[in-house]
Write a protein that binds this DNA or RNA. Structure first.
Lengths: 147, 147
DNA sequence: TTTTATGCAAACCATTTGCATCGGG
DNA sequence: CCCGATGCAAATGGTTTGCATAAAA
């Protein structure tokens, strides 16, 4: 969960990014950002939309998808591609800290963290002359039946 | 590219899997497998479908999607999650050997290989009691402008 | 006042499904 | 023969788009 200070910093960052890139600062956009800052894990456009319905004012799917695109562009959220039919998103600051183990069947997700990964990624980026942006490690497997 | 021997082994494996799981061995299924064995990288249902059109007989989208599902189930192909709108696939044997660097903008894909990754994955699987099935490491970044 | 964003509904498009027919076992 | 598989076309459902209206700047 984000604390108040982090939320303010993120809101300010979004506001500045909107300004810098020539987008308007509409209340809908900040309402969606607020909702996303309350998410503790993965979410989809549909889960956001249904949560939106319980809020003071309604926001359309068009605006929701539009805002999700902006939040992707400015790097506040990232898109996971775990399910084939529906896009899943996560705040980038959350996602940066862990990989995903996808536990079949049912695709239950375990998040993990491993310090050895970062040096490998840096090495690969140097090798291929890539300016690192982000990464994702997914591991698929089945629960072990033994103890 | 797969050599003849590998192709025969894969075809046999698919055939046995179909038998074992109670599915019929239709010519359409083997025709699609044959096409996939000629792919040297990523493919989508649509790229397969259009290649199919140049073949002796036509295969419907329904059958194509049905067969892709079977090939996923038996582990011959895996699904990548790079593009948001269309599923991308690859032969599992190919995918096992490399990770993917997604070079923005345009999502050009560089494949890579790093020996340090495997021990990390094994460690994580042991820690979480996971029977390893497969993994995927994606790195997003931009081309470096300097030399 | 200008121009971008919103909301609604319709359009899109990859994928799935229903159903009549075909054909593997 | 029987029942699963195919082909076609229609349905589905997540996402995008067109357009009239609203509201940021």
């Amino acid at each position: 969960m984000m604390n108040q200070k982090e939320k303010e910093a993120m809101t300010l960052g979004f506001s500045e990014w909107l300004q810098k890139t020539g987008h308007r600062k509409t209340p809908e956009r900040f309402a969606i950002l607020t909702l996303i800052m309350e998410e503790s894990g993965h979410f989809t456009p549909e889960t956001l939309y249904s949560k939106m319905k319980n809020r003071p004012y309604h926001i359309s799917r068009a605006t929701l998808y539009n805002t999700i695109r902006l939040l992707l562009e400015c790097g506040i959220i990232i898109r996971h591609q775990i399910h084939s039919q529906q896009n899943t998103y996560e705040r980038a600051t959350l996602a940066a800290n862990h990989g995903h183990i996808i536990n079949l069947p049912g695709e239950e997700i375990i998040e993990f963290n491993h310090p050895g990964l970062q040096p490998i990624i840096e090495e690969l980026c140097n090798l291929h002359s890539i300016q690192y942006s982000r990464h994702a490690l997914y591991i698929w497997g089945y629960p072990k039946k033994d103890v």
